[in-house]
Design a protein around this nucleic acid. Structure first.
Lengths: 195, 195
DNA sequence: AGATTAACCGAATGTTCGGTCGGGACAAGG
DNA sequence: CCTTGTCCCGACCGAACATTCGGTTAATCT
């Protein structure tokens, strides 16, 4: 096997560039010309690394979904009272969203025009339902208010968390910044704005 | 002046159709061909009513912004303690968002590729800052928790409200449904999930 | 040194895009 | 009944689109 020493693109490193551009211009608003300019290689060279535009999208949303579903398998999401598990998932979802920001951003914006997008939307709905069940359990155990429907509350909770992709930008090496955001999300979600 | 009796499109009625398609496929993912099929007239006929694709976008986001900024001029947003004014704006923003759902949806999704989109983003930021100032006042008056930064809290609050466009669909003639959503938003925002 | 191969490129492919053009149908005013 | 203006259409245009193709370069393997 040959191993080129000059720095070169892998499907993964190319994906990182592409996802940045997708998020800036929108997937449909991004041409292969845009991608090639951002990557610093020619349009045709991109096809050496990936099958095409849609494969880049598929890899990106796949990575985001992997991160999100991974949370549900962690110990904190499976053990203890439902309200503690929900708080854990809330915290971890926020963390994963910030860790994998560009990929999750892209996932949250797919509109369903291609089969890849429809697949992503379906898997996302699946994740939502898993968390909705968790919230419903916490209400049943008496730890969460019962005067707001579980499905509705889940949607508003995720609405708050997911909105991070609209404004959060990683702050250099300081993860103190990130932890502050996570705390704010958990506090506001569970205890509200009121003093 | 001639007055055709056969039912025909006005810029406004055409806009309503266009905005639906924009929201389904995304603005960039919508071609004039898609619009013409949805409107039931030919592509070229669309240009009889509007200057082009971007004018439709401009009219739509303009209408959304009009509705949002209108809230800030209402009495409830100008009188009383800051926390009450913030609660009023929260409630009314949710209501306007549901009333003008398709238009606000489009507004919240612009990415900044055209000058119209950049204009919309700027005006939106302006609205955000007005509300952020309100929230900051409420913290200063001791009615809201001080352990979460005002700017951050505003973003999370709007994140929750704005997420409505991702899932809320008007329920026939029943506005009881809508009022339930408004109540849930205000309750969760100010008092949290906890029982 | 010669063969192989990953990485890349410029030029061209067919397709779809937003938008234009000349004209037809039809109602209202004279 | 003939003009005038509204509303619409099919045919078309240049540009931009995603993708393909034939070939070049340079590093690795034998």
């Amino acid at each position: 096997m040959t191993m080129p020493k000059r720095d070169t693109y892998t499907p993964e490193s190319l994906l990182a560039v592409a996802v940045e551009v997708f998020n800036e211009r929108g997937y449909d608003g991004t041409s292969m010309e845009h991608l090639s300019r951002a990557a610093g290689i020619s349009k045709s060279s991109i096809y050496h690394h990936v099958r095409g535009k849609e494969e880049l999208l598929h890899r990106a949303v796949g990575r985001a979904l992997e991160g999100l579903f991974g949370i549900l398998d962690e110990r904190g999401a499976c053990e203890g009272r439902a309200v503690r598990r929900l708080e854990y998932v809330t915290r971890r979802t926020t963390e994963v969203l910030m860790d994998e920001l560009p990929y999750v951003t892209l996932l949250l914006r797919v509109r369903g025009n291609t089969s890849t997008e429809r697949w992503a939307m379906e898997r996302r709905r699946e994740f939502d339902q898993r968390v909705s069940a968790l919230l419903k359990d916490a209400v049943a155990e008496g730890d969460l208010r019962a005067d707001v429907e579980a499905r509705l509350a889940t949607r508003l909770l995720f609405g708050m968390i997911n909105s991070l992709v609209e404004w959060y930008r990683p702050d250099g090496r300081a993860s103190a910044d990130a932890q502050q955001v996570v705390d704010a999300v958990v506090r506001l979600a569970f205890d509200g704005l009121r003093a």
